[in-house]
Design a protein around this nucleic acid. Structure first.
Lengths: 208, 208
DNA sequence: ATTAGTTTGTGTTTTTGTCACATTGAGCGA
DNA sequence: TCGCTCAATGTGACAAAAACACAAACTAAT
């Protein structure tokens, strides 16, 4: 196996890993693919093996509000939460960097909870960490102003991609923060004046 | 037992209910009590037997942003999520209407997951429904303007208390929406002009 | 080089929030 | 009951933030 599951999910037991390899199916998706749409029925739990995914909440007016990133070793909490019932997805998932994911049929996800302690712990920890992340999102929009949120957004982006260049247009950033492009442009300009960033076309360099 | 657990939690098995009655401890709290503070360590899972609780996210500047209500038959997801690790609470819980709660030591919560199918299903369903509720909160603050949020707030209040009078000051409402009192006053006045509410002192009557 | 399309900039208007202060009404003691 | 105090609400002026409309700059393709 190309990507060792044991390395990516170090807490999984050997039996669990064997079971996953036996029952799950590896799939690749290229950047830009929408893995899951709002309202779609979920039939698989998704484990991230390689690459990056962004999770969005969609507004009625077509807004795409960025909630958080999913990275290797993590799983989509929504796809776990909508268990046996096969509920509709409440979110939209988009690939930002070519991913390899492990698809696990939902009924197995439920079965393993009883059979594999390490799976149980992983699921609970996934719930916990995603819930916390969403609470942080609430904090940001409830208590912080746009300039703080923009800084946080850029920081998170560079943390996720591991680089200091953001290759997005102001419009794309505005959409993910659910504000207007002009606001983003102006705030970025202010940040440039404060020496926090350097603005190029289609690219923002983070200086700190 | 005064409040039959079987009535309040109809999906619990008889063995589970017996175990809860044996190991849990019933406690009463009067309106206004803060059951859990942000940053506090959690040692119990809380099941609501009677009354109502509001769950808040606290801002650094002392803001108290209302997330959702907990009612009989529900449980605090945060208190479940912070399992064995005994994590710190990310939220603040305040009693709005005299409550009776069942306190369950965290280690039991974890143990029962394996032993009682109906407990497992309840926990998963609690995660799911609370997660969904938080996502709706994100929707509200990310996509909606203050007037829509205020209407939603009032509707939710009347749903929760089962009446059409809101006995709160404008200031209290403003705090829970993290805005200023003047804004709430003005928006309420507009709603009154539109015939949606009738404003009295310390009371708002919902007309629709 | 011309043109179409995207990205960024800028002035104006609208909305939202802040501040300072006025008004109202309830409760309470003299 | 009168008058006092205090919390609740109203209001206008102002500041900040965001939305809107349009202009300018740049890119890429023909």
């Amino acid at each position: 196996m190309q990507h060792s599951l044991k390395n990516i999910f170090p807490n999984f037991s050997h039996e669990l890993i064997a079971t996953i390899e036996e029952n799950g199916s590896l799939q690749d998706f290229e950047a830009g693919t929408v893995l899951m749409r709002t309202g779609q029925y979920i039939k698989n739990t998704v484990l991230i093996i390689k690459g990056k995914i962004k999770i969005y909440r969609e507004g009625e007016d077509g807004g795409e509000f960025l909630m958080y990133y999913l990275q290797p070793g993590q799983a989509c909490a929504i796809s776990m939460i909508c268990t046996a019932k096969s509920e509709k997805s409440q979110i939209m998932a988009k690939v930002v960097e070519e991913v390899t994911v492990m698809m696990i049929p939902l009924q197995l996800m439920d079965k393993w909870m009883m059979e594999h302690r390490s799976w149980y712990e992983f699921v609970i920890e996934t719930y916990r960490s995603r819930f916390e992340e969403v609470l942080e999102v609430v904090d940001n929009i409830a208590f912080r102003s746009m300039d703080e949120r923009l800084e946080f957004y850029l920081k998170r982006h560079s943390d996720a991609c591991g680089c200091s260049e953001v290759n997005l247009s102001h419009q794309e950033i505005a959409t993910e923060l659910n504000t207007s492009r002009e606001v983003v442009s102006r705030l970025l300009k202010k940040m440039e004046q404060r020496g926090l960033v350097k603005l190029n076309r289609n690219q923002i360099e983070l200086l700190k």
